[in-house]
């Protein structure tokens, strides 16, 4: 399952243009990684594509940190 975490972190690095070292599991996309509202929409789309899951809008709103994303994908893929 650590594979999921690595893939999530890789997407975050690519889409937000941040250093890998900053992408800790407790990092907040907005507060720690500089994402804006459009960035977070794009991130969720990238997770959907990578993992073949559908992330409904109400679930997407609760994905605020790297760990939130990993947990959602683990539970739903």
């Amino acid at each position: 399952m650590s594979d999921i975490a690595e893939r999530v972190k890789k997407i975050v690095v690519e889409h937000l243009g941040v250093e890998e070292a900053k992408v800790q599991e407790n990092a907040s996309f907005v507060d720690d990684l500089g994402a804006d509202s459009l960035d977070t929409v794009e991130l969720v789309m990238a997770f959907e594509e990578e993992f073949g899951v559908e992330i409904p809008d109400d679930a997407a709103e609760k994905i605020l940190t790297v760990k939130d994303a990993i947990d959602f994908i683990k539970a739903n893929s």
Binding site: L38, V41, E42, M45, E48, E49, E54
Partner: peptide, 10 residues
Amino acid sequence: PRRISPFFIP
């Protein structure tokens, strides 16, 4: 439509 990027319009 779910695959349209939020950056498409801008």
